[in-house]
């Protein structure tokens, strides 16, 4: 990455996301889950896929972990079945084994905009229990991705501000 940026909680996401290393991974809403599962292989840092419709608008998000569980359910359903001990886990298992395309597994299109602040990003990811979120423009087109761990580490790295320059490691 190039350039230096001091991140505060009021910093706008639009100023940050382009300077983070992890890029968004976009999948189609009706894309087969096996095909979708291959995409994050090329972007190992991504932990949340942005699901878009035919016009490229964000319509959902899909945590890579859920995708992994679904793939495991096809290969070795016994492992997931063994974890079913209550109604909730039985329902989750049913959803995983019954899913075929991204639409079946995705969650609501939680997102950030360029005008969201870093504080908004932390709050949204904590609230929805996601470890990353896509950044969208006014037309809901995906323009970036903010990874929680990467953002948090960048934020922490600059905390000893009195002894360190105000630059972020790039």
């Amino acid at each position: 990455m190039t350039g230096h940026l001091r991140i505060s909680k009021r910093t706008r996401v639009g100023e940050v996301h382009g300077r983070l290393d992890i890029e968004p991974v976009v999948v189609g809403v009706d894309e087969d889950l096996i095909s979708a599962a291959r995409r994050p292989m090329a972007q190992p840092g991504t932990r949340l896929l942005a699901v878009v419709d035919a016009e490229g608008r964000l319509v959902g998000v899909l945590p890579v972990l859920r995708l992994v569980e679904e793939i495991v359910a096809r290969v070795s359903p016994e492992e997931l079945m063994a974890e079913v001990t209550d109604l909730e886990s039985a329902g989750r298992f049913g959803r995983e084994v019954g899913a075929h395309v991204c639409r079946d597994l995705m969650g609501p299109p939680v997102h950030l905009t360029r005008d969201s602040t870093v504080a908004d990003a932390f709050r949204a990811m904590h609230e929805h229990q996601y470890s990353g979120l896509p950044v969208v423009d006014d037309q809901m087109q995906v323009v970036g991705y903010v990874d929680l761990l990467e953002l948090a580490l960048r934020y922490l790295d600059q905390l000893p501000a009195s002894s360190a320059p105000e630059a972020l490691p790039s």
Partner: peptide, 23 residues
């Protein structure tokens, strides 16, 4: 009944998914 559902539910859903039919 909760135990019965935990017994029978997952395998039913798996079988239906494997056949690509509604459970």
């Amino acid at each position: 009944n909760v135990t019965t559902v935990v017994l029978i539910g997952p395998i039913t859903l798996y079988v239906a998914a494997a056949m690509r039919v509604s459970p």
